[in-house]
Structure formats: structure tokens, C-alpha cells
Design a protein around this nucleic acid. Sequence first.
RNA 1: GCGCCCAUAGCUCAGCUGGAUAGAGCGUCAGCCUCCGGAGCUGAAGGUCGUAGGUUCGAAUCCUACUGGGCGCACCA
Length: 655
Amino acid sequence: MILEQITAQLSETLKSRVLVLFGHAVDRVVLQAPPRLAMGDLATPLCLELAKALKRKPREIAETMAKDLELPTFVEAVSVEGAGYLNFRFDRGAFTAAHIRTVMEPGPAPGERVIVEHTNINPNKAAHIGHIRNAVLGDTLVRLLRWLGYRVETQNYIDDTGVQVADVVVGFERLQKEGVAEVQKHIDDPSVPFDYYCWDLYSRMAVYYQENPEAQQWRRDTLHRIENQEGETAQLAALVARAIVKQHIATMLRLDITYDLLPKESDIIHQHFWARAFEMLKESGAITLEQEGKHKGCWVMKLAETEQFEGMDEPDKILVRSNGTVTYTGKDIAYQLWKFGLLDRTFNYRKFLTYPDGHVLWESSHDSETDPAAPKFGGAKKVFNVIDVRQSYLQKVVKEGLRLLGYTREADNSIHFSYEMVALTPATAKALGMELSAEDAGRAYVEMSGRKGLGVKADDLMDAMQQKATDAVRDGGKAEGLSDEEMRALGRTVAVAALRYFMLKYGRNKVIAFDFDEALTFEGDSGPYLQYSTVRVHNIFRKMKERGVDALIDDRSLDALTLNEGLTDEMWELVRLSADMPAAIRRAVDSLELSVVTHQLLELAQKFNSFYHKYPILNEKDDAERQRRAVCAEVFRRTMTKTLELLAIPVPERM
RNA sequence: GCGCCCAUAGCUCAGCUGGAUAGAGCGUCAGCCUCCGGAGCUGAAGGUCGUAGGUUCGAAUCCUACUGGGCGCACCA
């Protein structure tokens, strides 16, 4: 926070000084940490940029600027360096003393209502690692937004009436000749998790369709009955979807991922969201009924004139088919309108479950009454849809729909948080029993396929990671006195850190070629490395307390803090990096590039480990020197603890 | 055909709105536990930033064209 204030202040000062001295207006000033610490703590190439406009030499401008420049608090000196950079040096001691009190303090809260929709797994099979990437990105975004002061509502949309569920229902009814009673038995069978059972059934069904194309009729009939809530088929679909959603919720809870609301497709149909949206679209002229051509009889959204879509072969998007039924895109527009509170109808709600921490998860319902205890959902200022990049086109169409309806602001605030898919390395695919063509074996990665039942199940991966972590705890010799149960809990903690970090550390536009060995490393650029560093710093303070050594970081000692010249470069770098964390979080959210935060954390932890080896604290006899070191360690501890909490990476007592 | 994304060290990736000598992790090699925990630390080797032009005082970063790879562009969800 302090650093952000200094940067803002400095930026203003420089701008006005350029104006006063040269009569030139600058709209932004780049201020960043110079490449090497020796150069200072903040630097700007401002004078290099000005050189041309002012027709003067950069260094000359810089000298003029630097002379008698008014510096903000904590900034000690300004100098001209290199080709004409202005470099600023902080008063390390004073800055550190102020910073330690305000580590990871958020800025003013905007308080805006924001919806983040993520996870959205089809409720017809077990979650796989691709879904974990989605959920971890979404959940982390939620946490960061909350820290920034937004009021965030987390939605996990359940498509309980789609073909995917229908296919599993067909599998039960036609392939296995089973009804509600038998399926309930599968659900209650503890030997095979129901989502795993359906994973296999779903891929069996896909094979069956391939071999018996006429069976596609079953799918159409089943889908129809589900949509119209007809008979036992509809009941069965609801039963299957509900049971699997429960397992997805449980799977995600292992990673500490929770939701506020499960809006269901079936309720969107039941509450006639589309009917209302359809009226709005017709009234505004956003869609037209095609009178001729290949789309005759369809209601179509014309996108040819919008620049986003120009040059496309098929710039028209059908929202209502010639048989009068609405497409997925149509429903999505209606749902998006609801999220912004633009649809004059809403869901009814009931409790789905209560999480162990007491937080209630709600679901939409078409009960005649809504639960009066339900909070107000929807009506957000900004909506983030966490969906993989393959849905970009669709998301653009939905956005354009809002714009054509005249909701320009909402269209701008419909944000598609897109990310690349998780694929498998050929080695991992092979290990899973996938038969690879020669071509596939030579590729960098192979795509997963739910239809073919090819993929790494989320729970399997977590089990494997947990097992490996538990073994590491046992072998590490730090587990003396721990029960098996405690060791497993510790293993779970490490596994969660490893997995969440793994999903965050790549840029969102990178395809993750998933490899077991890579995901199971707990060294170097990994979640456990961050945990380990934090456990270490906790230990220092615990040991000092045990041995009665005063760390001198209590409030009174901090008041009397005089760090002055004592901070070495290594110590100061820790503080400087810590101070950068809030800005890194802001940058991560603004760019939706959450890896910015993990990179900042990694760099910070590396600096600490290096500091740790060089500067022992516990055995330092000189009070002033020990305090200096302890203060730096404490700054690190506070930064790590808070930031890891924001990423839902737990920190154990020991590991 | 049109659109989007990716290409940086042997491998996997960083590189913030153009800025100073392009950085990590893994792997390889050489070291470090009588000293707060070795899931760690120190050092070494390793790069024509896909290619060719262009803009700029300055390009891995911006523009153009190409090459290679991936993904989209349904009266499917």
C-alpha cells in the first residue's frame, strides 16, 4: 500500500514538473523497479521519452528535472543514470518501519457487485483435470476480487437438461434397462463412486451411438422428455444430475473451492427466462425472422455489421430454430441478462447444502415458493464467465446480444475469462491406457475426451498427490509423534498447495500438457516450496519464543525501531518485493493473468530462502542486528501468510 | 476461406502498459547440514527471443508478411 502511494505521488509530481518546466503535458509516467538493486528502488525512462518532443538531450532533461525535485516521504534521493533515467532511492529503514505495519493492507473498497461464474461441469460424469483448471482460476479470481473490496457472488451453472445428461440417462434406460430404483442403488453403492460409474457409462454410450447410429433417436426423445419434465425419464435425469453435482461439489471442496449459487438450466426453462428475453430481442429489433434462404423460418441475430464479426462466412447467428425451439446461445443471452438484473423475472431458491464452515450453498428451484432466507442473487455490475477459450466465439455473440439490446455498459462488463485447455502428454495418455496413433505419439500433447472416457479424473489426481505428499512427510523425518491420520492431513495440505499452484503458474493462454511426474514434483517452482519457506519462517519465531530470545518485533519494539543503515541489499530486497505484492494482485486481476501472483510469490520465497541461509536470527547476539533480521523475516511472513491465504494455499505447522 | 491463440536455454515456463547486462524451475556438472529444518542454499555450463522486413533514441515486447503448431467459425450443448 505504501509503495502504491509513493508511486502515485511521484507520478503526479513528475507530470506537473514537466508541465511547469517545459510546458509539456504527459498522460502517464512509467515507474518501475530498475533491473538491479544498485540502481535504486524506482526508476522512470520519462526523460528519454521527452527527448524528441522537447528536442533536447535526455540526460540534460533529466538533470533539470532532478534538480530541487520535491520527493515524497520515504524517498531519500533522486539521481540521473544511464542514458537519462531518473532513479529514486528509498530511505530503507523508514520505509521498512512503515511497511511492516501495513503489509498486504488492501486499498479502498469499490464495493461493487460482481458475479464470477465458474466450474460449470456437465453433471453426467466425474470431474477431470481440465475442470480443475477452470475451478482453481475461478475460485482464485473470486478471492482476489474480494480482497480488492468487491462484493462477489460465485455461481456454478448446472446444465441439467443437456445432451450430456441425456446420454447417460439413455445409457441407464436403454443399455442397462434400469430405472430410478436401480440407479438409486448405484448412487448408494460405496464401492464405485457414482460419478466414476457414469464416466464409464457415458463413454460406453458414445461407442454405442457410433456403432448404432439409429440410436440417436433415443437421445432426441430423451432430451425432449427431460426438457418437458415428462415421466420417469425426467425424474431419472434429475436424480443423476443431482447425485453427480453433489460429487463435483465434494471434489472441489477438497481444494477448498465453494460456491454461493447453483443456477440450473431446468429452472431457466421453467421460469421462462427465454420467453422474456425473446420479447426484448424482438422489440429492440436485435433479431429478425428470416423469410427466405437457408435460414428460412429461423430467428436470427445479424452480426455482419459489427466489426468483431466482419469477414466471416456466416455472420448470422440463429437463436430460434425453424421448429421454434431456442438454441443454447439464446438461452445464454437470457441468462446473461438475468445476471445483470435486466430480465424482469428471477429464480426461486432453496438450500442445496451447508458447507462445514457454515456457508450455505443455494440452488435455483421451481418450487412454488422461494426460501425467504435466500439472499438476493444476480443484478451485478460486472460478470466474469470463466470458460475455456474454445467458447470465445459464443461468448462474443452473447456479449453482442447485450449490445444490440442497447445495454452497452453491460456488454462491456461481460467479461470472458478465457483460458487454454488441459491436455495430456503422450506419456501420460499412454499410462492411462490410451492407444495412440503414430501421429499422436509425436505430438506435444493429446486432447482429453469425455466421450471416449480419456482423461485424468480430478479425484484420482488428488489421491495420487496426497499419497505422494504423505509419503514425503513420513520419509522426511518430520513426522515423529504424528498419527497416521495427522500425516494424511498434512499430505492433503501439501497436495492442495501443489495442485492449486500448478493450475495458476502457467499463463492462461498456455495449453497445459499435463504430466504426472511434473504435477507430482514438490520442488522448485511449486506450491510446497512456498509452504516450506513459510513453515521455516514460522519456525524461527516459534523457536525464539521457546528459547526466550526476544525477536523485538512487538509493537513497542517496532515503535522504537531504528533500522537506519543496517539493512543490507538482501534484507532490503525482501521488503521491496513484499511491498510490490498488492500491485501484483491488482495487475493480476486487471489482466486476468493470475500467474502474476504466483511469480511474485516465488521470487519472494527465493529471496527469503537465500536470506535465511545467510542471516541466522535465533543465534544473533547483537540486539539491533537481530531486530533488523527479524523485522525482514516478519515482513516476509506476513506477506506470505496473507497472499497464500488469498490463493487458498494452506500453510501447515510443519511438513 | 475467415478469426483467435502459441513459438524465448536440452525440457517446462517468466519477462508487468516498448526501456538499462533476456530471467526462473527441472535436468547436467561442482560444492554446502558440529550453525533457526537439505521439500533448502551457493556456483558453473547452456539463448541468432520461429524467419524476414518495418516503426523507434531504444523491440523478446508494437506493425506487416511468412513458417510451424493448436483451437474456433452448427437449425450441438
